[in-house]
Structure formats: C-alpha cells, structure tokens
C-alpha cells in the first residue's frame, strides 16, 4: 500500500495508484479533521487527487518532489 493510514494522518509514499482512491475517500469521509503527508510522494493518480481536492484535508507536508509540489499547490491551495 502506498498510502499508510495512521490515526489521523494519511502518509503518501512513492506512486499512489488509482486503486487507493476508494479507500482514501472512505477514510476521509470518516475523518473530517484528517491531515495528509505528501512528503515522500512522487506521483498520485488523479482519482486520489480529486478526493483530496474535494475533502480539503490539511496538507501537513508537501511533496519533496518540487515539480509535483507546484502542480498540487495549483490544485489544493484555495484560490
């Protein structure tokens, strides 16, 4: 699994695949105050991304991958 669900924190690692989106959505539905750690993530399937965009969890750590970070900021930082 490339998403590790801790108590109130979802940790994304490496490439997060499309299959994970369903689980992520369920988890975020249950945890409205959840945070997300994207530090070690290098890519995530857009199914996951749109779940994050809709649920708007707090991004605790942005990706170290600078290019990905720019992309995600465009999508996840409220305009």
């Amino acid at each position: 699994m490339s998403i590790e669900f801790k108590r109130n924190l979802a940790v994304f690692r490496e490439v997060v695949s499309v299959e994970e989106a369903e689980g992520l959505l369920e988890w975020l539905q249950k945890k409205p105050t959840a945070k997300v750690d994207l530090g070690a993530c290098v890519h995530l399937h857009p199914a996951n991304l749109q779940v994050l965009m809709a649920a708007k969890p707090v991004i605790q750590t942005w990706p170290t991958d600078a290019q990905l970070r720019v992309w995600l900021e465009s999508a996840l930082v409220a305009h």
């Binding site: 499309v18 989106a21 369903e22 992520l24 959505l25 975020l28 539905q29 857009p46 199914a47 996951n48 991304l49 749109q50 779940v51 965009m53 809709a54 649920a55 992309w71 465009s74 999508a75």
Partner: peptide, 23 residues
C-alpha cells in the same frame, strides 16, 4: 506551466465518486 482545476464544484464527500474524473 500547468494547473489542475475542478470541472464542477465538488459534491458532498459522501456522494463523491472517486472514479469519475472531474479534473
């Protein structure tokens, strides 16, 4: 340069279909 945006306002989380691409 590139950016991602939502096609429509997001539905309530409970009704969301993660596998319907709205980006």
């Amino acid at each position: 340069w590139g950016c991602i945006e939502a096609r429509d306002p997001w539905p309530p989380l409970a009704e969301m279909d993660a596998y319907c691409c709205l980006l």
